Computed example of a mutant assay.
Amino acid sequence: MKNLLVILAFVLAMSACQTADKKSAISTPITYTVPDDSAITKAVHDAYAAISFKKGEKPRFDEIGNYFIPQAQLINFRTDTADITALPQFIDLYKHFVTDGHIEMFYEEEAFGRNEQFGKVAHRISTYNTYLNTRDSLAERGVNSFQLIKTPKGWKVSSIIWDVERKDLPVPAYYLK
């Protein structure tokens, strides 16, 4: 009986220690500062600026590649399947839309963004607004997932994956802060 009481006291003491550990882990918020936050944000904003142009101007097609690695992929989920495009193909398609007269003005801006980074790898979730041929009305809104790598020349986009807001897929308030 005496051994049973000692074991029971030990078990209760251990259980109290575990509960205290769980409580302290839950109540202590984990804070994280992205080391290259401003440089990653700038790289993404520069990529948006490179594809944007005003009415009467011509897009800076040659400049777009400066913000991406040469092997970059752009993955679009406008439909139920991923449309995967290499950077040179994307630039060619964009040129055709502009030269064929489909686009007279294109402006894309970030409405919300947040970075994550580990070493030379980064991710930016970025809610975007797109204006097409006029700044008076929003043509499209959606969410981009930018993957970036740190190169000797700074942060470059290695891929962008995006989906477009629609009636059955609204951008959640979480991405509109």
Rank of each mutant, 00 (worst) to 15 (best):
D36E: 10
D37S: 08
D37P: 01
D37G: 06
S38P: 05
A39V: 08
I40G: 00
T41A: 07
K42P: 02
K42R: 15
V44Y: 01
V44T: 01
V44L: 00
V44E: 00
H45K: 11
H45N: 12
H45S: 08
H45M: 08
A47M: 03
A47I: 02
A49C: 10
A49K: 10
A50L: 03
A50S: 11
A50Q: 06
I51F: 08
I51V: 15
S52V: 09
S52L: 11
F53C: 03
K54F: 09
K55L: 11
K55N: 12
G56P: 05
E57M: 09
E57N: 12
E57I: 03
K58T: 09
K58M: 10
P59F: 05
P59H: 07
P59N: 06
R60P: 01
F61Q: 00
F61W: 04
E63N: 11
I64R: 01
I64L: 04
G65Q: 04
N66W: 00
N66K: 09
Y67R: 02
Y67V: 00
Y67A: 00
Y67H: 08
F68D: 00
I69P: 03
P70W: 06
P70T: 02
Q71I: 08
A72H: 01
A72C: 08
Q73N: 14
Q73P: 06
L74M: 12
L74W: 05
L74S: 02
L74K: 04
N76T: 12
F77I: 00
F77P: 02
F77Y: 14
R78C: 10
T79Q: 12
T79Y: 10
T79D: 12
D80E: 15
D80V: 13
I84G: 12
I84A: 14
T85Y: 13
T85H: 13
A86V: 11
A86S: 15
Q89F: 12
Q89H: 13
F90M: 05
D92P: 05
L93K: 14
Y94D: 03
Y94H: 05
Y94P: 01
K95S: 08
H96N: 15
H96C: 11
H96M: 14
T99F: 10
D100F: 11
D100R: 09
G101P: 06
H102F: 14
E104N: 15
M105S: 10
M105Y: 07
F106H: 04
F106A: 00
F106P: 03
F106E: 03
Y107W: 13
Y107S: 13
E109A: 15
E109P: 07
E110F: 04
E110Q: 12
E110K: 08
F112T: 02
F112P: 06
G113N: 09
G113D: 06
R114F: 01
N115S: 07
N115F: 00
Q117Y: 02
Q117D: 01
F118G: 02
F118Q: 10
G119V: 02
G119R: 08
K120E: 11
V121R: 07
V121G: 03
A122H: 01
H123P: 03
H123M: 13
R124A: 02
I125L: 09
S126G: 08
Y128E: 06
Y128A: 05
Y128R: 06
Y128K: 05
N129F: 05
N129G: 04
T130L: 14
T130W: 06
Y131P: 01
L132T: 06
T134I: 10
T134S: 13
T134W: 11
T134V: 11
